[in-house]
């Protein structure tokens, strides 16, 4: 999903930067507020950021014979709501743009919009939908992780189509072309990411139960006091 440095026309680069900036600023405030009001969240915030950091560093092979990155942004969006990921995701992209020549500064806005804004929000929405329909935590996490990943790549494809519409088939043709490059490759990666997310949350439900209850991810267990309705 990294649009390479210099590969978006200047007007698009500026436009996406302007579009992403408020989300990132709002996300930075959300992170500061979370840490200030709930210092005990810091550990889990670190885990959410680290999860994205690892997953987006790894290029994985896919059935299509090409390889691509997972995103890992769904986990933090489910735990701390999407604004937090707008900051954490942008930090990851900045690291890759500056040190790895992956993505870029001129395309940071567009990449952040796809990776750190749209992905987390779609993933969070999918998670909430599954929970609202009566699904459990883990099915919700799976759906959230998979769709955060896929939505990121769909957004990148549309951004590229907008910047490079096809001469004959226009926007739709270009979107189909870029989706063809990204989307099918991404499906097994998204599923793998979903399974990793389920693993992470299985570990967290055992070891970080108080945090998950406070964040509203888990309902407080009626455990020993026989009074809570299940």
């Amino acid at each position: 999903m990294h649009i390479a440095e210099g590969f978006l026309p200047a007007a698009h680069a500026v436009g996406w930067t302007v579009a992403a900036a408020p989300f990132v600023v709002h996300g930075a405030r959300a992170v500061v507020r979370e840490v200030r009001e709930n210092p005990e969240s810091t550990l889990l915030l670190g885990a959410a950021g680290a999860f994205t950091f690892v997953l987006s560093a790894i290029k994985l092979p896919s059935i299509t014979g090409s390889s691509s990155h997972p995103t890992g942004t769904g986990a933090g969006a489910i735990l701390f709501r999407p604004p937090v990921m707008a900051l954490l995701g942008t930090v990851v992209l900045l690291f890759q743009a500056l040190l790895l020549a992956h993505g870029g500064l001129t395309t940071l806005g567009a990449n952040a919009f796809a990776f750190a804004v749209v992905g987390p929000w779609v993933g969070y929405g999918a998670y909430r939908l599954v929970r609202a329909l009566g699904g459990g935590l883990l099915p919700g996490v799976f759906a959230g992780m998979v769709l955060a990943d896929l939505a990121t790549y769909v957004t990148t494809s549309l951004q590229l189509a907008l910047a490079f519409p096809d001469a004959s088939s226009g926007l739709a043709g270009a979107a189909a072309k870029f989706l063809g490059i990204f989307a099918i490759t991404q499906i097994p990666l998204a599923i793998g990411e979903g399974v990793l997310g389920v693993l992470l949350f299985r570990v967290l439900t055992v070891n970080a139960r108080p945090e998950l209850e406070r964040l509203g991810v888990l309902r407080p267990a009626p455990a020993t006091t026989a009074g809570g309705a299940a």
């Binding site: 550990l43 680290a50 999860f51 950091f53 790894i58 690291f95």
Partner: peptide, 20 residues
């Protein structure tokens, strides 16, 4: 450097999960 990025992420994640 990609390996470094993964190592930092994996290290922090492992530290947090271990502490919890």
């Amino acid at each position: 450097l990609f390996a470094l990025q993964a190592a930092i992420g994996g290290g922090v994640l492992g530290y947090v999960l271990g502490r919890l």
